[in-house]
Design a protein around this nucleic acid. Sequence first.
DNA 1: CGGGGCCTTGATGCTGTTCAAATAGAGTGG
DNA 2: CCACTCTATTTGAACAGCATCAAGGCCCCG
Lengths: 213, 213
Amino acid sequence: MTQTSMLSGFGRSAPAAGDWDGAARLTFHPGEEIYAQDEDADLIYRIVRGSVRTTHLQADGRRQIGDFYYEGDVLGVEMGEAHRFSAEALTVCEVVALRRSGSAAYDSDRLDRMIWAATASELRRTQSHMLLLGRATACEKVARFLLDIADRFRGEVVALPMSRQDIADYLGLTIETISRMLGRLQAEGLVEFTSSRNYRIHQRASLSEMAAA
Amino acid sequence: MTQTSMLSGFGRSAPAAGDWDGAARLTFHPGEEIYAQDEDADLIYRIVRGSVRTTHLQADGRRQIGDFYYEGDVLGVEMGEAHRFSAEALTVCEVVALRRSGSAAYDSDRLDRMIWAATASELRRTQSHMLLLGRATACEKVARFLLDIADRFRGEVVALPMSRQDIADYLGLTIETISRMLGRLQAEGLVEFTSSRNYRIHQRASLSEMAAA
DNA sequence: CGGGGCCTTGATGCTGTTCAAATAGAGTGG
DNA sequence: CCACTCTATTTGAACAGCATCAAGGCCCCG
């Protein structure tokens, strides 16, 4: 594949330690934009700490969340000249950035593999998201969302770094519907919310059943 | 069906010339399966002639169409072990098939580039589809669908190789809604159907407006 | 001419939205 | 630590869009 030509090194930038030697290390605060929709897609980012959402905004204000990203995930591998989504920090976030175009560089083989893996992962997740949006009831969407998020954290209690509006724009629903479905799932004893942004799954099997059907 | 068994017929099929030397050339009839959901994703296919749909079937029978593919498009580049979608011919179809893993081959560089390009294209199209499914009204979905299909054919009259059910499962709607929206767009003079599977766009600007908003 | 898909059209109902308001939480300054 | 404010979330009631159910028409092919 052509990754070799797609990648390159990084001129300046204080070399930071970590997986990507020579990469720039950046910090973002909640709500801050990491890259903008329609901006040139020249850099890719790896999240060292924190969580990020990608959003696509339409002219009339409707918003679609592309995905949520966590520690270890790679951002910005969309194909094409420009980003179709912007990326914003949900929590305080540390990322390392690497330029992907430009002159051939030092460890391009490793970067190639990384970009390829990130693209493959992106495609898989986008396909899942598409399936979720296409034919699922509000309740199914919310159940699957809770399971998906829980699968990323090994902890007993799961934290939701995103707002109800973010969840709504991810699932193609309204915040009111999100709230009602969360309420219903809790009333049925499948999950328990210790606060509006922290929950625990009580009956994973039943929840999976709601999600799949 | 597994590729091995599918390709067992390769012995007889005369290795055809064309873009992919040494590739197997196959013919499928309407409704025939090119590869199955959950089957090992070992082969990729390039459509020489005809059109194809990819579909994902859930246990309860709900169906989601992944995409429609035409002459020149590459199929089967989904990542992961197995296909999440099956592929079925819509019309009589000729495809060439290539194994993507396995013995290091003659022109693997070119193959790599091709796979990379197809994956990039797949990601872009899946993202578009996701945006279409997330926050769009029935009317917007249908308008965008008509424009998308028209953009693939340069002709004045556009042919729809797929059924209303296929369109419905692509857009996450029902056949009745599809039919009503097509009727509405025609009544408003934006498009004209010469038959239920052939149309002509009359006011592209207005149609785009319906699609975007 | 008859049968069987496929597509269209009509009537009714349900799911999720919209509009509106109450409640809960988080942050701030006294 | 408490009162206050601002925002996020929940809850309720009415509405709308799309689905569902049910006929009816069209077209292809035998």
